[in-house]
């Protein structure tokens, strides 16, 4: 049923740190690489080497310029499914293909039931769902449901591919329904926010805002380096004379 399940306590999701994200696209690439062979495979690419390249991605990294009275800064912004608590993408689905799991809150699509009406993508304010024109069904982030419970992987690899790939640890995975979890504490400590809270979708994923500007400049305690090879000519002779 596309009616929302009565939610248990567990709410698996991501916490994304906009302060440390460097926009390297590693999360997007790792996501594409894992998921094109994963639960929602394939992540079709259309005309990948041509002039009208298009394809399905679950994670897209934008870059913004945020200008305030404190000055401007570049903010890299990864955007993916937020696994909302009240996901309209699920309730609008006419076939029951879209569903939210009662056990952990992950929002998934049953590809065998999807008729490709695209209404769920209209109902999602965040652009988390992308239509696969080749297969004719909608696709979306699975929170790497085929990794996080995968006994064939080592314990430390049982996290979404985007989290495992992030070189700056800007992505965190955990249970946001448990106030004592590391991710919940991180959100509390850094003042994590919901995206578009006014629409009332209650996203599970949280974004940590960039830290406040500081006036401190970096101090360099090491001495400046000397040239290894002595210079020739008149200046070299002056240098040698003065050095003696």
């Amino acid at each position: 049923m596309t009616c929302l399940p009565s939610q248990g306590g567990k709410k698996l999701g991501l916490v994304i740190d906009l302060d440390t994200c460097v926009g390297c696209q590693a999360c997007a690439t790792a996501c594409k690489e894992w998921n094109t062979g994963g639960h929602m495979a394939p992540l079709t690419d259309i005309d990948p080497y041509g002039g009208t390249v298009d394809g399905v991605w679950f994670n897209r990294v934008h870059a913004y310029e945020h200008t305030t009275e404190m000055g401007g800064r570049t903010v890299n912004f990864p955007r993916s499914c937020l696994h909302c608590e009240t996901p309209a993408c699920v309730t609008v689905c006419p076939t029951g293909a879209s569903y939210k799991r009662a056990s952990d809150g992950i929002v998934l699509i049953d590809e065998d039931k999807c008729i490709g009406c695209k209404l769920c993508s209209w109902a999602c304010p965040y652009g988390a769902r992308e239509f696969d024109t080749d297969v004719g069904v909608m696709k979306k982030c699975t929170l790497c449901v085929d990794r996080i419970y995968n006994d064939n992987l080592t314990e430390e690899d049982r996290v979404p591919a985007c989290v495992a790939a992030c070189p700056t640890s800007a992505r965190h995975f955990g249970d946001l329904g448990d106030p004592r979890s590391a991710v919940s504490q991180l959100v509390a400590e850094r003042g994590g926010v919901d995206l578009m809270p006014e629409l009332g979708y209650h996203p599970t994923n949280k974004y940590l805002p960039p830290r406040a500007h500081t006036r401190r400049a970096a101090s360099v305690p090491a001495k400046a380096l000397e040239p290894v090879r002595a210079e020739g000519g008149f200046l070299g002779w002056v240098d040698r004379m003065l050095s003696n």
């Binding site: 945020h66 200008t67 009275e69 974004y207 805002p209």
Partner: peptide
């Protein structure tokens, strides 16, 4: 984007 205040421009 969750970025409070000022302007947010797509770069």
């Amino acid at each position: 984007t969750g970025l409070v205040g000022g302007t947010v421009r797509s770069l």
